[in-house]
Every structure is written in C-alpha cells, then in structure tokens.
Amino acid sequence: MKKLMIGTAALAMLAGAAWAESHSVVRMGTEGAYAPYNFINDAGEVDGFERDLGDELCKRAELTCEWVTNEWDSIIPNLVSGNYDTIIAGMSITDERDEVIDFTQNYTQPDPSAFLAPEGAELDMEGGIFAAQSGTIQASYIAEMGATLVEFATPDETIAAVRNGEADAVLADKAFLSPIAEADAELAFAGDDVLIGGGIGMGLRESDGELRAKFDAAIQSMKDDGTLNDLITKWEVGETF
C-alpha cells in the first residue's frame, strides 16, 4: 500500500512538472455562436458571458489564456485529443458527457429550457413539430417527449424554422432565446419551461485534474465574493447563486 502511494505521489509530481510546462498557456475552446454565452462580436473576437467569466477565472488562477473557436459537433473530440485545454461553451453538465470528460462545478444555475413559438400559439406537446439544434440535450428531450423533432445544424436555423413555419416551436436554453423574443415581436415564449441537465460547467480532460482544481477554486472564489452573480446579472443568463 505504501509503495503504491509513493508511486502515485511520484507520478503526481512528474505530472505536475510536465503540467506546468505544457500549460503556460491555457487554450479555451468555445463555439462562438451562442449569445449571450459566447458569440463573435463585431470586431471578430469571442465575446459574451463566458468570455468575461473565463478571463476573470484565468486572472484569479494566474493563467495565461487564449480563446479558440471550434464547431460544436467536434468540440469534445478535439478537447480529448488535446487541441485545446478547456471547453467553455455553454455546455450543460450531463452524465453522458461526464463519462468522457470532467467538469468543474457549475457556474450558472441549471438554466431552464424554454419553447419559443409564434405569438399566441398553443403548443401541442404530443403532435407538435419542434425544432432543436442537433446534438443538444434539447434534441434528445424532444425525441423522448414523443413529439416530432426537426434538427438543424446551427441555433440560427432553428429560430428561422419557427419564423417560417417549418416548426411550431423551438426548444433551447432560455437565456439564448430571451434576447430573440425581446427583439422579435412575432415570437414569444409558450408553454412551461423545462429543466434539462445540470448547470453549465467548464469541460476538461479527465487526465487534467490539476487544471480542473485551479478553475474549480477560481469559480468558487467568484461565487463567494459575488462577482459571478454580477456577471450573471449583466449578461442575463438565468438565476444568480
């Protein structure tokens, strides 16, 4: 037993040294197409709630961070393959994802998903047609609900589908839908909100425990001094802690 522990400690030290070397720059992977969490602003840079949050976390953890964008579909394979070090892309913590990657503690409250439909529409939960981005937890939810699911590659297309009548409603994170509902008088929330998945957390490689611990601590400190709540209020991404 003792031998084993020494072995583990040596391994940890080795890993620690290698870690410091490889993580002098932490690459933050995001999608850049999911306002207000993350989007590309007019200047062509990553912006949004997670940009503010990520920069602050890096400052607290004393890391140099760099932002990269990646397609949603391949965002996890590229993380485990080592092309960037974290996923900070509005990714809900789910069991199936947790089997493959590790998450920090959640930095938003579990955000309800909501149905956005044309103004005054009644939702038919059994026979209706619902749009969702393919590969999201909302898509699986609709499939299980029994209604007709229409999947689109990007969030934009799901909204367009509701506008032009292809789908009765779109199911997506409420924080993503609210600014759209505000800006477009013809669209409004309908039906009840549903709670799918846990809160949003940062995704990291399972072998990257040390980096995870650093970010975890930084998130905790932001929760403790209330700065996280300020950010949540600023970007309107759900309930505060």
């Binding site: 290698a18 070397e21 485990v80 080592g82 493959v100 990657i101 399972e206 072998s207 990257d208």
Partner: peptide
C-alpha cells in the same frame, strides 16, 4: 488514458 489522448509536453 480513458478517452484522453495524452502525449508528453
């Protein structure tokens, strides 16, 4: 290591 692909730095 599990799903991760880890090479030395």
């Amino acid at each position: 290591q599990g799903n991760d692909f880890v090479v030395c730095a």
